[in-house]
Design a protein around this nucleic acid. Structure first.
Lengths: 339, 339
DNA sequence: TCACGGAATGAAACCGCTTCCAGAGATTAT
DNA sequence: ATAATCTCTGGAAGCGGTTTCATTCCGTGA
């Protein structure tokens, strides 16, 4: 619609009185060109309002300066924080973030990942270890480097930056045990396609088993990561198997949902029920009562993932696995077991 | 690293025994090719594990099937929700989201926008009406269609999808007036580069002015959109100009921060102080007490922005401005003025 | 002053795909 | 059976850069 097309590098070269090759070098690799020439080219470029053509550049140079991220819904605060820091850090390194999300569905994940690869991403940031097997086949075939976030693969087969979910979960459960609790319930995220959720649940079981405490099957409830779903699931738990004094939640959204439902039902926290969350999202400290939870450095995960990817793309050696600390933050939603 | 390079379309064409042109058409415009030929090409493609080369395709076709979004930090729940729905809806239309963020800094915004344009986005989604003037110049020169979200430009000069911040803010303030409040304070977001914030503040002033009520300068406080900053700002407000019975907040994060600080200081809400927020983020309903706020359909804004952009790219006519309803949701953080 | 070597530059070959244009085949009308 | 009309297909020209390779410059040391 807008008159003549945009100026191309050839136009800049002509205006500067140099060849196409020199113009390209002046802009991309300034050291290869004499100072005076470089200046002339730059001036011509800004004069003409030249904007490099990314696709052409990507085609010729075989790199797009673009990193793909395949995330679960980014409206989950924990992923929102990571997305934010990831994108920011990437931008600092001259890369742009191509974002794709899926609703915890491996098939959908495969599709969007494929799309990202078609778009020519130079690297990929994934979440967790649970993926369709064809994902890894695709990644290998495409030769795209990737970083797995949140989880850490002990085998060291994948590059990972994450936390030890199970250990942190054990720790949180122990905290409750130390407070004298014996009747536990778990409000877990869906475990089917989510290794973090599984590990967290396994951590609870592990800590309880160490004290020979049983976790009744009807005291474990799975729910989606939204407040309404969490509230409904907690209500069901109460209806189905009341009597627990400690509730371990798969993440803070679930925990806050439970807290809301407690407030609505007049269940006093922590006097009648202790609740622990996982993630330490912003709202956890402001919840009522302030939530005891496991702090997961989400923004830091995003930043580190970006840094690791940039380093790898720059040819630097990066340790395959990096584990960030995830410590328990005791606030006011946990207290001694009643009676 | 991985052996020979990936198969290209020419390989597929050869394997299928057709020309490059036919192979291209078979994959991109199936109708132009005889059924049998199409099948052969498709088979050859999947046989070879062919993955189209996005940059080459973009270069040749002059479209990248990529949409850029320039957002404030997406860890703000309201933008997280919009980012999520935007990306999801775009993916449904075969487009991928290139995400860039800035810290409410017009200069930074200009830079990332330029980068996005270089990457060849087919369209751009922006937030709000306040931008560096060079932004629009850049957009026009590049000929990239864009949608402005959240705000609506009454002049109809830009394509917009948003809500009427000022009117909603007036409504929220009237609610407080109807409850008998006369002593107001405002906890606003930074107004310098943010038209939504300004409009919301203006709405409060407008509603008060209509009743000849003054909003004291020392009762207006600006803060960043994080819980800690909100708490600190509220504390300052209390120290500097106590005595207000109604607090209007620029958004829910600020409001929840204020609520937290109230809880910490033993200020009873709504008995001693009424608080209203803006946005109706997930946590608003679960806050303590549940927050009275203005519901802004963030996810819907993202979805509609995607739909509008896709329609425009498909050549369909789209009304330049679209305003979504933003109604007041009365919960429990507001009550009659004390005494 | 002249040969020599590194630095700067230019010509041209791609990168992988889309699309215009024309020709070949198939189909229908006469 | 033949001409006229479509439908498919193939050849080839780009799209806008990067990069290899050869060439031209220029400053030096003898």
């Amino acid at each position: 619609m807008a008159g003549q097309s945009n100026p191309k590098l050839a136009d800049v070269a002509r205006a500067a009185g140099v060849s196409l090759a020199t113009a390209s070098r002046a802009l991309a690799e300034p050291d290869l060109v004499r100072t005076k020439t470089r200046e002339r080219v730059r001036e011509a470029a800004s004069m003409l309002g030249y904007v490099p053509h990314g696709a052409a550049r990507a085609l010729a140079s075989r790199r797009s300066r673009t990193i793909g991220a395949v995330f679960p819904p980014v409206d989950n605060p924990i992923f929102a924080a990571a997305t934010q820091s990831l994108g920011h850090a990437l931008a600092g390194g001259g890369y742009t973030l191509l974002l794709a999300t899926h609703e915890y569905d491996p098939a959908a994940e495969l599709v969007v990942t494929r799309t990202l690869i078609e778009r020519g991403v130079d690297g990929l940031v994934l979440v967790g270890l649970h993926h369709d097997p064809r994902m890894f086949q695709l990644l290998r075939q495409a030769g795209v480097p990737y970083e797995i976030t949140w989880s850490v693969d002990p085998s060291g087969f994948h590059h990972c930056i994450g936390v030890a979910h199970r250990i942190a979960s054990v720790r949180a459960t122990q905290h409750l045990l130390e407070l004298g609790h014996r009747e536990f319930a778990v409000l877990s995220g869906h475990t089917e396609h989510n290794d973090r959720t599984r590990e967290r649940l396994a951590g609870v079981r592990e800590a309880l088993a160490a004290r020979s405490i049983e976790l009744r099957a009807d005291r474990v409830m799975e729910a989606g990561f939204t407040l309404p779903q969490a509230r409904a699931a907690f209500a069901l738990l109460q209806a189905r198997a009341p009597g627990f004094t400690a509730l371990v939640c798969g993440n803070d959204v679930l925990a806050i949902g439970a807290l809301c439902e407690c407030a609505a039902r007049g269940i006093r926290v922590p006097q009648s029920l202790s609740v622990v969350g996982f993630d330490d999202i912003d709202m956890a400290a402001g919840a009522s009562p302030p939530l005891t939870t496991v702090h997961v450095p989400a923004a830091e995960v995003g930043r580190r993932a970006a840094a690791r990817m940039l380093a790898r793309l720059a040819g630097e050696a990066v340790p395959p696995i990096e584990e960030l600390p995830a410590g328990l933050v005791v606030r006011e939603s946990t207290g001694p077991a009643p009676r």
